[in-house]
Every structure is written in C-alpha cells, then in structure tokens.
C-alpha cells in the first residue's frame, strides 16, 4: 500500500481554513496515487484549544465533512477533530473510506499532567476497536493512548496489522533524551511484538511557544523505520510498503497465538 502522512500545521480554532488545507492535501495524495492519507491529532482544529473547544466541535456525521467524504471514494482518509455528542466534547478521529465515514474513534487516555489539559476539556472514549480495511486490520490510537500498555494490549489482542497513531506531540529534549526517540521506542516495541506496521503522523507548528516536532514515520514489523519526515517542517511523506508482510512476521514470531493458548477463557 501507499500511504501519505501529512504532518501539517493548523490555525488554532479555524476549522473552515484547516479543512481547506486538509482537502488540498487529500487531492495531492490522490494525485500521487496513494491508498490512504493520514493527518495528525486535532488536525482540523489545532491542539491548545482551551475555551475554543466548544466553538470547533462537530458531530461525527456533520455535513461539514461531506466534501472529504466524497473524496474518500478515491482514497482512505484519517484525521483528528473535536467531536461533540450530548453536550460533551471528545478528542476524536474519523476514518473515511469508499465515500463513507466508517469509523469514529474517541481518544481513551487524556493527558492532564504537566502542560496537558485534555482531561479538563474532553470526555474520554471507552472503547478501542480494530476495523477491517482493504489493507488489513487497522487500530487507531490518538497520541497518549500509545503510552498505555492496556491500550496496546487491546490492539495486540485484536491482532492489529496496522497501528495508526495520530499525534500532536510537543517537543522536548535534555542532555540524555529527545522526544522523538520515545515514540520510536514505543512503536518499535509494539510492531515487533505484534507483527504489525505502525504509522505515526505527528503535527508541526507552534502554539504559544509549544513546538510540535513532526518527524512522522512508518515503521515495519521489525521495528525499522521505513521512511521518516523532517522535524519541525510541514511535509507530506509518502511511504510505500507491502502490508501483506505482516503475515510473515506473525508466523515467524507467533506471540499472539501463544498468548491465546495460555489465557484461553
């Protein structure tokens, strides 16, 4: 399959303008004959929303998405947005395919420590599903979900073929560590132990001095990065890989098979 990772910057709170950018990148990805295009967490709205959160929230079936839905006849489209349901807001992601919205995922784990305020503004999702796509079984994570072993366990138990992580991950570093390495190690661990690919789409741009580092990548079943985007710069990274190779990886290292035997209920 051929996937386009769009590590875009967004205008904080301006969904009318951000949807134009998303739509233009979708066109580009279609032009480049990609099968799937993935955008970061909250790509439609920006990240540090605070009180803007209600101004930018949409129902998952809002007609606002009609144009994107149409375009998904030619390409699978995944992006993050603020979902409104029953008066509450969710940090969610939509998956469009074949002209339909096929999946709406609500972020399960909302960080509320350090600089993060998600727990204050969003309600949390309570399920992690794995969906069937043309490219195998896909699980969506939004950023912090990836740091929870319990979420990884569900993705693993569901025999995920492709883990897609939408992220708005802020940059930090010190003398011994740098943020992108954390992501690479989390994904390296998961892909090798589950025999899956990981698609990490992280935004760029600054919001009040907080820089999102980009460096989006696709990782193979051996934990190797197939291709990665630059840090700090907006970019559409196109990566081609043979998603059928998950079968080789899973048979070579059948971790889940043995897990099932040990804990069969």
């Amino acid at each position: 399959m051929k996937v386009a990772l769009c590590q875009i910057d967004t205008i904080l709170g301006k969904i009318d303008r951000n949807i134009v950018k998303i739509s233009n990148y979708v066109d580009k990805a279609i032009y480049d004959k990609c099968d799937m295009v993935v955008f970061p967490e909250l790509a439609l709205s920006g990240y540090g929303l605070r009180d803007l959160v209600f101004d930018v929230a949409l129902k998952s079936d809002d007609s606002f998405f009609d144009e994107v839905k149409q375009k998904s006849k030619d390409i699978d489209i995944v992006f993050g947005y603020v979902e409104e349901d029953g008066g509450y807001t969710y940090n969610s992601a939509l998956y469009f395919s074949k002209g339909n919205m096929v999946y709406n995922y609500r972020k399960n784990f909302l960080p509320d420590y350090g600089m993060f305020e998600e727990g204050r503004y969003f309600a949390s999702g309570d399920t992690i599903d794995t969906i069937e796509t043309d490219f195998g079984k896909v699980t969506l994570f939004i950023c912090e979900d990836s740091f929870h072993i319990s979420a990884q366990d569900i993705a693993f138990q569901n025999n995920t073929d492709i883990l897609i992580i939408l992220s708005a991950s802020p940059f930090w570093m010190d003398s011994k560590s740098i943020k992108p390495d954390l992501w690479k190690s989390v994904c390296s661990n998961f892909t090798q132990l589950s025999g899956s690919y990981a698609i990490f789409a992280n935004r760029v741009g600054f919001e009040d001095g907080v820089g999102f580092f980009g460096n989006s990548f696709v990782m193979d079943t051996d934990g190797n990065i197939i291709k990665e985007a630059k840090m700090f710069k907006e970019e559409m990274l196109i990566v081609e890989f043979d998603e059928r190779l998950v079968l080789k990886a899973k048979s070579k290292m059948p971790i889940l098979k043995n897990e099932v035997a040990r804990y069969a209920y």
Binding site: F171, M173, S175, I178, G205, F206, G211, M231, F232, K233
Partner: peptide, 24 residues
C-alpha cells in the same frame, strides 16, 4: 554536563519558533 544540549537541533527549533511565531 547535565545541561548539555544538541545545539544543531535546538538551533533549528529556535529558528523555526522565531519564524513561525512571527509570520503567523
């Protein structure tokens, strides 16, 4: 030495910060 930084990465980051936060 605990305060050592990778100057190449930090420089790039601060250049982008200055450019983007002004241009926007």
């Amino acid at each position: 030495d605990k305060l050592r930084i990778d100057c190449n990465i930090v420089a790039n980051y601060l250049i982008e910060f200055t450019r983007q936060e002004i241009l926007k």
